[in-house]
Each structure stands twice: as structure tokens, then as C-alpha cells.
Design a protein around this nucleic acid. Structure first.
Length: 301
DNA sequence: CCTTGTGTTGAG
DNA sequence: TCAACACAAGGG
């Protein structure tokens, strides 16, 4: 409901001496009628900037909440559907930036701009081999996964959630089996038009579908860390061939440069890039969605 | 000035 | 963790 009618605005209140509180989480009123957004972490407040529109401040909080607390974070507005391509691309975008960078963008009101730019670059195959191969809008999202520590660790393999594997990359029985001779080779094009070839097979021992040979190279080159998002797409070019695409956060040069760059939003050490353990979107991936529509937005009716 | 956003506190 | 409140800091 709208708090407009100051329920408590009692008799004695000449010139609004009280500020109207917001009904949105993380949103606080400013004396000039604007709205501030803030989120807390490790006991301290992280200022997300001020906004003329109360709902904009609420959205800023939502974005920060997802970056700081993961996709399950409580938000003011309902998040995009998990199967929405926009959702996948935004998660890729979020995992590609440090908390500091995201906060920076929010404070400068450049988040949406940056996200758009990111999506533009996510367009795959820009004139690869002389022909345009598939724009972002033409892509069809198959699924995405928030990678686990083991997916980017020494096991050199990525477990494809069974549900998605069987739906999008079905293996014929003769292609299954323990033998390392089994499986198939799948080619994926990344955002730079580079083609990656992975061996895809089924491990009877763990009853799981995996990408093995070629995966570790991908992890290394992309600098993937636990919690990052990898998405799989496809598109059909003019003829009848289906092209598979793979997308993930942009390669982070050597290390950071990010957090330090632009402005200096103060936010103590630890926070930034990777934390120890399984954080950030670190949802126990094992059983990814399907029909699990477990959102948790504030039901502020 | 006016606006931002930090200090600080008390409640949950 | 979170917002209310006060007010100092910062920019023009």
C-alpha cells in the first residue's frame, strides 16, 4: 500500500519536520525530497547513492542485494524469471564485476548503461569469417549454471545439470559408458567468436553428464571462479545448422584494476572479488531449477 | 547555500 | 541487519 497518507502525521506538524519513510527495503529519505539507497554488510553501511525516484532507489538496492547476497536475496521487486534470457545475461554481467564496481555504477547511475553495453558485446559472432552469425536477440537461451568450486577446480570438468543435459545435449546409449572413448565433441562459440571444443560425456560412476577435455582451458582463459555464471545458447543460421554458443563473464586481465579504477567508493578490503569459500550466487547448484520457482521478493502490496 | 552520505543509536 | 535522525563534509 501507499504510505502516502502519513498514518502518523498528527496534528502538530507545521513544516514537515519528519521525513517520510520509504516502504522499500534499503531506501531512506533525504531532506531534499530525494531518496537514498543503502545496503549493509559486515556491520557497516554501504551507500548506493541518491535518487530522485523512490522506486529507482529501490531498484538500486535490489541490484546490490543480488550482487552482495546472491540470486536468492530478498528484493523489492520480483526478479526476472530464471529462464528469461535477460536474466542469464544480467547474471553474467553481475558475476563479471566486483561489488565495488557495481556499487560504483549504482552511485553514478550508470548501471543500466553498462549492462546494455555488456549485452551488446555479448552479441556473438560479430562478422566472424565475413558473415554475421547471430545477434544476442536471436540467440535462444538453453540454460545457465552458477559454477561450483569443483567445476572450476582441478577436476577439469563441468557437470551439466542432468535435467539440462538430457534435454539439450542428449547422448545416445552407445555414446555413453565409462570408457574415455565415449562421448561426443561439442563446439561452442564464445562472445569473441572464438570456438571452443569440449568433450561431452556421461559418467556412470557419478551418474552425471560432464564437459571434460577442453573445459579446463576455458576456465583458465576466462578466469572463472566459483559463483560465476556460464550460459549456453544456440541459434540457427540461415540454413539448417544449429550453432551452439557459450557465454560467461568477460576475461579479467591478470587480476583486478577494476575495483581501483574509477571512483573510490570506500568498502573495506575483503568484500571485493572473490571471497573465500562459496559465496556470491553460491547456491548449492546441484539441483538447479526446473520448477523451483523459489523467489523471495518482499510482498509489499 | 544545498545535497550527499557518514555518525550514531535503538529496535529487531 | 536495518532504518531514523542529526549533522558534518563536499561542491558550486
Amino acid at each position: 500500500m501507499n504510505p502516502s497518507s502519513s498514518s502518523g502525521s498528527s496534528p502538530i506538524d507545521e513544516i514537515s519536520t519528519k521525513l517520510p519513510s520509504s516502504s522499500y527495503k534499503g531506501v531512506v529519505p533525504q531532506h531534499n525530497g530525494r531518496w537514498g539507497a543503502q545496503i549493509y554488510e559486515h556491520h557497516r553501511r554501504i551507500w548506493l547513492g541518491t535518487f530522485a525516484d523512490e522506486t529507482e532507489a529501490a531498484r538500486a538496492y535490489d541490484i546490490a542485494a543480488q550482487r552482495f547476497r546472491g540470486r536468492e536475496a530478498t528484493t523489492n521487486f520480483p526478479p526476472l524469471t530464471e529462464t528469461d534470457p535477460e536474466r542469464a545475461s544480467e547474471l553474467v554481467f553481475l558475476s563479471a564485476h566486483s561489488k565495488t564496481e557495481i556499487v560504483d555504477m549504482l552511485r553514478k547511475h550508470t548501471y543500466h548503461e553498462e549492462l546494455r553495453h555488456s549485452r551488446r558485446n555479448q552479441q556473438l559472432g560479430r562478422n566472424v569469417g565475413g558473415r554475421r552469425t547471430g545477434t544476442w536477440s536471436e540467440r535462444e537461451l538453453l540454460f545457465y549454471k552458477v559454477v561450483t568450486p569443483s567445476d572450476v577446480g582441478k577436476l577439469n570438468r563441468l557437470v551439466i545439470p542432468k535435467q539440462h543435459a538430457e534435454k539439450h545435449f542428449p547422448l545416445r546409449n552407445e555414446e555413453k559408458g565409462e570408457d574415455s572413448n565415449n562421448g561426443v565433441l561439442l563446439n561452442f562459440e564464445d562472445a569473441d567468436g572464438k570456438v571452443w571444443r569440449f568433450r561431452y560425456s556421461y559418467w556412470n560412476s557419478s551418474q552425471s553428464y560432464v564437459l571434460t577435455k577442453g573445459w579446463s582451458r576455458f576456465v583458465k582463459e576466462k578466469g572463472l571462479n566459483p559463483g560465476d555464471v556460464v550460459s549456453f545458447w544456440r541459434y540457427f543460421d540461415g540454413s539448417d545448422t544449429m550453432q551452439l554458443l557459450i557465454d560467461c563473464k568477460v576475461v579479467q586481465p591478470g587480476e583486478e584494476s577494476a575495483a581501483s579504477s574509477s571512483s573510490n567508493v570506500q568498502m573495506n578490503e575483503s568484500e571485493d572479488n572473490d571471497d573465500p569459500g562459496v559465496r556470491l550466487f553460491g547456491v548449492n547448484i546441484a539441483s538447479t531449477q526446473a520448477g523451483s520457482s523459489n523467489y523471495n521478493n518482499m510482498d509489499n502490496s
